[in-house]
Amino acid sequence: MSEEIVSVGIGEIKIGRPPLVLQAVALGSCVGIAIYDSAVKVGGLAHIMLPNSPKNPPMDSNSQGKFADIAIPFLVEELVKNGASRSRLIAKIVGGSKMFEFNNSTAVSDIGSRNVQAIKNILQELSIPIVGEETGGNYGRTMVFDLKTGSVEVISLTQKIRKII
């Protein structure tokens, strides 16, 4: 079986099975979250932009993937529909960096770490353990999620990092 690589763009969610490989390219302050059930080899990747969905104006129907509070429960539901078991799900998170350092930076402008914190809170509520994490810092990352093994490769071009979590 040759692998097939599918890109998960900003604000998108995709799920699948082997030989599919899901990738989120050039994550900055966004966070890529890979959720996987190794027993049935079903997994999904969400490329999340912001912690919370806006209350006003209400969201349009194609923005489930943009906000952590909606994207993660949606992703979990989709995985369960496709045969995954809630109790076996594990998560790996990548991204949430701060690309620029400003002297007067306020907490508000560090959206990356707010994303990471929001995602951790939601995963905890859903009792999904985080088994791999590569977040923070001041550089962009690409993540490649292999649905055959559940491994996530993290690549940074400028830091010359290439590792598996």
Partner: peptide
């Protein structure tokens, strides 16, 4: 303008940061 800051990195990571930085 405040003193600027530089990032040499993947283009989408940079644009995304600028678009989302205020939440």
């Amino acid at each position: 303008p405040l003193p600027p800051s530089i990032a040499v990195d993947m283009v989408n990571a940079i644009l995304e940061h600028m678009l989302l930085k205020d939440g």
